[in-house]
Design a binder for these strands. Sequence first.
DNA 1: AGTAGGTTGCACACCAGTGTGCAATGAGAA
DNA 2: TTCTCATTGCACACTGGTGTGCAACCTACT
Lengths: 189, 189
Amino acid sequence: MNETRDRILDVALDVLGDNPDAGMGDIATAAGVVRRTVYGHFPSRLDLVRTLTERAVAEMTAVLTEANAAHADADATWVEFIARVWPVAHRYRVLLALRRGEYGEAIHSLLGPVDELLADLVKRGQDRDVFAQHLPAGMLSQLAYGVVFAIADSDRSTVPLDARAATITSLLMLGVPESRALALVGDQA
Amino acid sequence: MNETRDRILDVALDVLGDNPDAGMGDIATAAGVVRRTVYGHFPSRLDLVRTLTERAVAEMTAVLTEANAAHADADATWVEFIARVWPVAHRYRVLLALRRGEYGEAIHSLLGPVDELLADLVKRGQDRDVFAQHLPAGMLSQLAYGVVFAIADSDRSTVPLDARAATITSLLMLGVPESRALALVGDQA
DNA sequence: AGTAGGTTGCACACCAGTGTGCAATGAGAA
DNA sequence: TTCTCATTGCACACTGGTGTGCAACCTACT
């Protein structure tokens, strides 16, 4: 019975990923269902987006706490995190675009916990001089994983290749020296 | 006679900067004019956006060629460029948001020349081992100045402070070592 | 006074998307 | 077979934005 609902959610992620401005009709059609049916499961577009966001938050916090538990050094943890979060970021790339505009506030509030975890990680790295301190932890973490999302977003074909590039780039902007960054990603390639 | 037109353009930059989804009506009101008048100067919303973009391109290419002419090293040129382009990026921050969505294609095509200049600069840096080579020049340049715009965008009050942070961050992700980056921005602070 | 041009204030047509109501259908479970 | 429930196919109301047409207006300049 949840079968249709799940399919709608999956397809919505796809469709919105290609075009964040796609309407309920487009999503319905792509899911092989009528628009009215979508409204049967999600009373409003906002409900759909919110559900999608909740999914993303759940997956990302899971990944993030996992990565946090495993390692000691902040930079290694970051690498671990990006590696695991990459497919997720790619799937939910739509949220990057949707964060601005109508649903921005709703999404932002749901993403709050993730942002905090991320900021904590960066802060930890800054405190131990693993990460640079030219920006406050909150902003730096936003930019760093914003870049990861941006690369995941720009990538519409070559998935596995650019995860490495995304990791390196984010490490660099966190202030990790290039040599160290290369060593870190080389470790687990 | 162009007075009204110019005011509309200036105000549009403001209004759209705050809310990229603002309508012609909002812009008109903010400019102290009636919606109909705006359509008198710009037959369509696209015309308005295009004009705005053309302005931005003109200013940015001017700044970029200036910076290119002045220095020899790619990283120093980059610093020079960011310093000069910062106020411009802040003014035209709306284009970052508008680049996705309806007018994306139009904006992107107009921005082409700027992208090329930027990519050339990064390429030059990569060829001389000043910049990292983990990403192709085209993409790296996009990300680096994307970050600058992102910081300019997130900044809604403290203007002069974060230009420095933006420069450092972009240098880092270009692969410039932190010590060198700090020296470069220290030079001209 | 007369004229030209930018501006105004409507009204209008139009479009795309959202969300709702309701009866009909169809397939699977009791 | 009968009951149930998701799905369907319309029709509908509503919203918010775009772009146009046109007469009136006001101001500056001649």
